[in-house]
Design a protein around this nucleic acid. Sequence first.
DNA 1: ATACCTGCAAACCTTTTGCCACTAT
DNA 2: ATAGTGGCAAAAGGTTTGCAGGTAT
Lengths: 157, 157
Amino acid sequence: MEKVQGFIRKTKQREVILRVLRGTKSHPTADWVYQEVRKELPNISLGTVYRNLKILTASGEALELSYGSSYSRFDGTPENHYHFVCQRCGRVEDVPMPVDESLDRAVEQLMGVKVRQHRLEFYGLCEQCAAEQIERPERPMALRRQPVEERDQAYAH
Amino acid sequence: MEKVQGFIRKTKQREVILRVLRGTKSHPTADWVYQEVRKELPNISLGTVYRNLKILTASGEALELSYGSSYSRFDGTPENHYHFVCQRCGRVEDVPMPVDESLDRAVEQLMGVKVRQHRLEFYGLCEQCAAEQIERPERPMALRRQPVEERDQAYAH
DNA sequence: ATACCTGCAAACCTTTTGCCACTAT
DNA sequence: ATAGTGGCAAAAGGTTTGCAGGTAT
């Protein structure tokens, strides 16, 4: 039942997707990639693009700029602060570290933009999950689906 | 047609939602908030929770921890680097600033966790949008819907 | 009175999946 | 041979919205 990838095969589709991704600096959406790839492979499907984007992300050949989980989370503390996200159980914790607003000024000078705020998030394993994390698979672990129960524990108070 | 909020009325629903949000440190999802609020207001609907979460976020009484747009964006440059996101046009740009990995070690020592990476994103107005941003509404501007054409321009190469 | 709000349900939209034929190894 | 893949279309799942009746101000 558990479909675990033994090896990743080389295909035309994946090759073009990666080339398109590397060929732009625009941080495109999946749909944009789809439209681009379609110019070369008119029959490719959106599903394939998503599948390969996920594979490329899991194998470290691309980055996915998103919150990770598909839902938004809300925070009743309006003052900006940093967060730590456990990549295994999904828990989100505040980081007891002061917000460094001088970073905003630095970016403004570097890029000529107006910065209102920044968000800093750390990703890794929380104390509890790090303890349970004994084995270390050589294949990208992100390919494995996370059990729903574990994800849910993060919603508990 | 454009529904612009002139003032925000005080309602039981919004009051309870804010109280629930302030009463937890768990960075809950909208659905978790819904379940909690329902204990006090059994007839409230998920839609109302979403609507109010959005209003609270826009008025600065809560933070939304998400990427902002509903889609993921991908980046063909696997090396970690920082991003700047224009809150007006949605454009995403790389920040020419070295990644400070000592932050990861600092958080590990502060929290007793294992940090694999961090993500730092700056939000504000890009040079172009800052120039066009002449007026400054006193009501939270996030309440206003963004024209589709402007959002789309961010997908262009 | 008059906006604003709510509940409900349908609609939306991005992302995921099942199925089956195909193909790289 | 055989597991990984792709195309297609349906499904999923979080979030938004239209509507019509309520409700603060």
